[in-house]
């Protein structure tokens, strides 16, 4: 495959080109999959901050997650991933700024109906049976989908009369996921959902998640620190580090605007042939220089230019907290409400 280095005016900020309405366009081929829903984004944070033990768990967070995306939420432990989800789920209230869910504040009744949140510790009622847990979902949610929830449970070969407290971690995850998906949310937030799930179930549950997302147009925000787990799953990504947004936007656009370059350079000073490009991360091994850059214009000769994988990109940003944060236009909150690729 050939990946031309984008020219500056193609850099993030532009709509995907005509040939490839690609990542952002209607899920045309399928039954009830329509366009990415026009209207307010699934999540929008402006100046969002939360204090925690003298410091800030989140600070000055500005980003937007357009509806219909499957977004990976990435960051080291303590970066604020869980905090962000808790704020959106109205489990916490911010000390600064605001977060909106489909244009409404998190505590509003319609937000409550539209969000499902599966926390890292997967809280469930240990003394209830699985059937009773699903009944709880039915009793508490007007849009409850019992069939779907039962199907998720059944695929794990779990007995409906099994007590939740006796399940293994992976089985609990499945039940919690059944409860979250049975609610038929418009925004599903999953905090490290697959951490205690075996590989086979992980693949199956991820597939199920994707299938539900495509069938109902659910926006999914999924956090993980296993970056490989997100590759191929996410079409959108949000990177947090130290409570701040480092990177946000469409995976394709972000990959397109970055290059992994390998070349030779003597010494430890700045590399002259990379001047003028934004260097996210630069590593040296002897004479070899490996850099993840945001090229601006032509790159001089003498460089091996590779398209980075999502993992390369995320790792580079996670390792270089001093690099300038990057948000593609659709990930920027505020005035520009236009969604790329949305036909009115």
């Amino acid at each position: 495959m050939s990946h031309p280095i984008p020219t500056p005016d193609e850099l993030p900020g532009d709509l995907p080109d005509e040939d490839e309405p690609g990542t952002a366009s209607p899920l045309a081929a399928d039954a009830d999959a329509g366009a990415f829903p026009a209207g307010p984004p699934a999540l929008e944070a402006t100046g969002l901050g939360l204090r925690y033990r003298g410091g800030w768990a989140l600070q000055g967070c500005d980003f937007r997650l357009p509806a219909g995306r499957i977004c990976g939420l990435v960051g080291p432990n303590g970066a604020g991933k869980s905090t962000l989800m808790s704020l959106a789920a109205h489990l916490m209230t911010p000390d600064a700024g605001a977060v909106e869910v489909f244009g409404a504040r998190p505590g509003a009744p319609e937000s409550r109906r539209r969000i499902a949140f599966l926390g890292q510790d997967k809280p469930l009622f240990p003394r209830l049976t699985i059937a009773e847990t699903l009944r709880a979902g039915y009793e508490l949610n007007p849009g409850w989908d019992q069939q779907l929830a039962e199907r998720i449970v059944a695929q794990g070969n779990l007995s409906m009369s099994a007590r939740v407290g006796r399940l293994t971690g992976g089985q609990r995850t499945r039940v919690a996921l059944a409860l979250a998906l049975g609610k038929r949310p418009d925004l599903l937030m999953l905090d490290e959902p697959m951490s205690d799930v075996d590989p086979v179930s992980r693949q199956e549950l991820t597939g199920l998640l994707m299938a539900e997302a495509v069938e109902h147009g659910t926006t999914v925000l999924i956090s993980s620190h296993v970056l490989a787990e997100l590759d191929g799953v996410c079409d959108y990504v949000l990177v947090l580090a130290s409570g701040r947004v480092r990177l946000a936007g469409e995976v394709d656009e972000l990959l397109d605007s970055h290059r992994l370059v390998v070349g030779a350079h003597e010494g430890t000073g700045p590399v002259p042939s990379l001047a003028g490009h934004q260097v996210v991360e630069l590593r040296r091994t002897g004479r070899q220089v490996t850099a993840l850059i945001r090229p601006e214009g032509e790159l001089g000769s003498g460089w091996d230019v590779l398209e980075p994988t999502l993992e390369d990109l995320l790792m580079a940003y996670l390792r270089s907290p001093e690099a300038t944060a990057l948000l593609t236009p659709s990930a920027r909150p505020g005035a520009d409400r236009r969604l790329p690729g949305v036909s009115a």
Partner: peptide, 27 residues
């Protein structure tokens, strides 16, 4: 692959909604 193991969600019960769950928690 789908084994319908549970009876329907709605069973005859005095309590419904949040009250049902609250009562079930304190059973």
């Amino acid at each position: 692959r789908v084994r319908p193991t549970s009876p329907g969600p709605r069973r005859a019960s005095v309590l419904t909604g949040a009250a049902w769950l609250s009562a079930r928690q304190e059973r």
